[in-house]
Simulated scan of single mutants.
Amino acid sequence: MTDSGTAENGNRRRGRDETEEERADRMWTELIQEVRVAQMGVQILFGFLLTVVFQSKYEELSTTDQRIYLVTVVLGAVTTGALIGPVSLHRLVSGRQVKPQAVRWASRLTVLGLVLLLATMACSLLLILRVATHNGVVPYVVTGVVLWYLVCWFGIPMWTRRRHSAR
């Protein structure tokens, strides 16, 4: 093996030469960076949602809009839990030689958090557009945005994973 990561025959080496623990350490670092981005978004959104009920206009919302708001707040709360879960998981199992398993569970919590964030964003957008426009096109706009999120957050990553894992 040469220093440049090529084998003696000149072919590029595939994969990483790392132990299971080294891989878990690397994956944990990457996961936490990803979670930070999602956490920031959900915390800002959730903070905003918590203030709405204290606004005088809240009482003027229709029963349907108040229910959408309540569902959105609950979704924001469970989303926050799922996206903060990996941090708690790491802290509680740190030093117990279970990092590969912790990475798997933290990854699952993060994906769940992203799905819940998608639902929270959709409900927030639905509520805001209903209140702001009173327009019948709102569900179609929200559906379009949800489809866009699905493509960006799941479609492209899964397509890339499938396409490049087959090689």
Rank of each mutant, 00 (worst) to 15 (best):
T2A: 14
D3Y: 14
T6C: 07
E8N: 10
G10F: 06
R14K: 10
G15W: 04
E21W: 06
E21I: 07
E21R: 03
E22R: 05
R26H: 01
M27I: 01
M27F: 04
L31M: 00
Q33E: 11
R36D: 08
V37L: 14
A38D: 10
M40L: 14
V42E: 08
Q43V: 02
Q43T: 04
L45Q: 07
F46V: 08
G47Y: 00
F48K: 04
F48I: 04
L50R: 11
T51N: 09
T51A: 12
T51R: 06
F54E: 15
Q55D: 15
Q55V: 13
Q55H: 14
Q55R: 15
K57T: 13
Y58K: 07
Y58T: 08
E59Y: 08
E59R: 14
E60K: 11
L61S: 11
L61R: 10
T63F: 07
D65S: 04
Q66D: 09
V71A: 15
V78R: 12
T79W: 05
T79K: 03
I84C: 07
P86V: 05
V87C: 09
V87E: 12
V87I: 10
L89E: 00
H90Y: 03
H90D: 05
R91T: 08
L92M: 10
L92W: 11
G95Q: 15
R96P: 10
Q97L: 14
V98N: 11
P100S: 05
Q101C: 01
A102E: 01
V103A: 00
R104T: 04
A106P: 01
S107W: 02
T110A: 04
L112N: 00
V115A: 06
L116P: 03
L117N: 02
L117Q: 02
L118N: 09
A119T: 10
T120H: 11
T120G: 09
A122M: 08
A122N: 09
C123N: 13
L125I: 11
I128C: 00
I128F: 11
V131L: 04
T133C: 00
H134S: 12
V138S: 15
Y140G: 09
V141S: 13
V145K: 04
V146N: 02
L147F: 07
W148H: 04
C152R: 14
W153Y: 10
W153E: 06
F154A: 06
G155Y: 12
I156P: 01
M158C: 01
M158D: 03
M158S: 08
R162I: 14
R162Q: 13
R162N: 15
H164N: 13
H164M: 08
A166E: 12
R167C: 09
